[in-house]
Write a protein that binds this DNA or RNA. Structure first.
Lengths: 223, 223
DNA sequence: ATTATCTATAGATCTATAGATAATGC
DNA sequence: ATTATCTATAGATCTATAGATAATGC
């Protein structure tokens, strides 16, 4: 029998994914932050969505900022881990190596697919002015490292000599998936098309069919 | 002699650009919304920045939302007007006509330059969840029309058959300037490079030198 | 009479802390 | 003893309105 008085742990079925109360809070916060905005979402509304009291949130998180910090970190950690692994591979052109174009395509596809398929479109929170604070230094550093890895993989690749830097444009095209999704016009193809577009800007449009296959193989190998 | 009591119009030098009190309020709000966030900016802090009392704002704007509405509308109206003018031009290939590639380049360069050089980087507010409300219908409709015009100008242009849609990718690359600027890595070239990248994705990389010149001429002719 | 400002305030929040209560695990 | 919840609340906001005051323009 379940009692409902003070101090009793909740024994109800969680209405949210997540093994722990902490995960339920994160999921509820992600939904509210992305649909109503960070500053407009009160700690009370997060607690209501989880089915606990407002003050109980503070057992799991020190501040409201800390919830956002956790969520943002989660959006970048997977892609960064993959990009690091890819960047550490030998980059030559022999049979066992992966040339830069292939590696860039794999990173873009992996990263873009994550952004498109994540349960909540948390990327819309990346550019909140609040996030520039030192509190979010780790997220910001991770995102910057990811950007740098794109630049490294695309180094020297450009469709026109002295023209747009293919690596950074690929990063930007992948992140534009966030806004495509926010505008409700993302499709199943969007991530693949963004990765392709990045490679075209690297001057590798001719080799795309081969790069696509090799890039997918790389993802399969590393995940 | 200036008196400082109640009811007296301010006779001080305005510390902000703008001929009217309304313009000063808009400028202060733009600064605060972009540097501290919309929901985190109180009407009091806007008023303080202008040098009036909090309640005096409500003489000029019915609500705080109305301030944001005005600001957002201002970021898209110029580019939309230009894109409409360009889209209305004859689109053939004779000497007096402007082919689609040239027109798309001109729109992207004009629009991107505005985003890069505007006094405040208001584009970071485009994807606030708050902005999805019906209150902002006009801004949303204008931005959508602008996106559609990019698609129209890029119709049928793609670097690879069946590949990425060049028009919409150009729109996305131009809007990515907002986030480049927010990240502090925009340069004087950024808008021109975004326009170039859009044309490359349209499969017009070979013709870029000619298109750049024709696009700039088109801007000069229409502005 | 209209415009632009002010003072004062209603009424509704909001975040975070203090301290009580009870279940769990040693 | 530790963990997770609760009630209660301090203290600080926040937006928008009401109504007074004075300058300006007819």
């Amino acid at each position: 029998m379940t009692s409902a008085g003070p101090g009793r742990p909740r024994h109800q079925q969680p209405s949210r994914p997540g093994a722990t109360a902490r995960d339920e809070i994160l999921d509820a916060a992600a939904e509210l932050f992305t649909t109503q905005g960070f500053a407009s979402t009160s700690t009370r509304s997060i607690a209501d969505a989880v089915g606990i009291r407002q003050s109980s949130l503070y057992h799991h998180f020190k501040t409201k900022d800390e919830i956002l910090e956790d969520l943002l970190e989660g959006t970048v950690s997977g892609g960064l881990k993959f990009a690091r692994a890819v960047a550490a591979l030998p980059g030559g052109t022999s049979e066992t190596d992966s040339p830069a174009g292939t590696r860039l395509h794999a990173v873009a596809l992996y990263d873009g697919t994550q952004l498109c398929n994540a349960r909540w479109n948390l990327g819309v929170l990346y550019h909140l002015p609040e996030v520039r604070s030192t509190r979010f230094a780790r997220f910001l550093a991770d995102r910057q490292e990811l950007r740098r890895l794109y630049g490294e993989l695309g180094a020297g690749l450009s469709a026109v000599p002295g023209g747009p830097d293919g690596g950074d444009f690929t990063f930007r095209l992948v992140e534009s998936l966030i806004y495509l999704r926010a505008d409700g016009v993302a499709t199943d193809d969007s991530a693949a098309q963004a990765a392709d577009a990045g490679l075209i800007l690297c001057g590798l449009g001719q080799e795309l069919p081969a790069i696509r296959a090799a890039g997918r193989a790389l993802i399969d190998r590393l995940t």
